[in-house]
Write a protein that binds this DNA or RNA. Sequence first.
DNA 1: TCGCCAAATGCAACTGCCTTGCATTTGCAT
DNA 2: ATGCAAATGCAAGGCAGTTGCATTTGGCGA
Lengths: 152, 152
Amino acid sequence: MDENSKYKELLNREGIKSTRHRNAILELLEESEFPQTAEQLFITLREKTASIDLSTVYRTLDTFASKNLVIKSNRVDDGKALYELNHNEHKHHLLCVGCHKLISIEDCPIGDLKQTLKSRIDFDITGHKLEIYGYCHDCKKYKLPPADHDNL
Amino acid sequence: MDENSKYKELLNREGIKSTRHRNAILELLEESEFPQTAEQLFITLREKTASIDLSTVYRTLDTFASKNLVIKSNRVDDGKALYELNHNEHKHHLLCVGCHKLISIEDCPIGDLKQTLKSRIDFDITGHKLEIYGYCHDCKKYKLPPADHDNL
DNA sequence: TCGCCAAATGCAACTGCCTTGCATTTGCAT
DNA sequence: ATGCAAATGCAAGGCAGTTGCATTTGGCGA
């Protein structure tokens, strides 16, 4: 019990027990560059560590989400739940509709809008989610008609 | 058969038959200010017109989506599918996390980013989706901790 | 106007993602 | 070490959405 206690403090701070599975899930999320589905995490966990039940994965992720350790969202194209570690940083992604690659960007165009909306219609923004679709460098040459999520 | 043929031309143009249900669904979508779930549409259709099966609603909406007559998306908080008429206009919404009210806005902050990304990382944006959360005027006074979808 | 046929629909069963109930196991405070 | 609440496994269940198939219907050609 040494690897396992890697996140012990963190978990104790949130008032929840440090367990083998919770540690493994946190570790996996830390290694993940992008939000993962519960299924993806489940499969990887089964491969690399001892057995775990899918319901445990869901329950653990929900627990983490309720403690704000992870951010839960829903994939825009199929609605599947996605989980990622909450780094308290702000980031958006570009999704290539050709190859489904994700590209992280630091840009965030919401800043100005925040003030505008506050003064114009008295709305306090607390968060937002931006999904950008398009074609990456490699896929531009094969350019197929896009899935048409929205018009620009 | 007069009301029913309201969208006949439109449907024929897309190479699909004009039917009672398809007309009813198009009419309903036209009356809707915001994206609707299939369930919401189904219930309203059952109330106001003759019986229709839920599978027909889904099939019809999918057909319309494949013809680009409607835009299908997934609600960010619960992943349910949402359908709206494709007006070929561009619009975003503010979602109040207090009362779940939607407020339409014309603002779109993506314009500048489009050029930036094209030149900087050779990515061609074809579409995007922006969800903004916060508190509306009425809910600010009761301000509860937000559902925490993202950090701003 | 009639009859035909592919397309559309209703119905019921089914799938996939996720949740829940309950019995068992495990972390951890004492 | 030990006891208890929290965590987990397992199996069943729930809900959104899909599919197979028999029946009905729109619309075209005769």
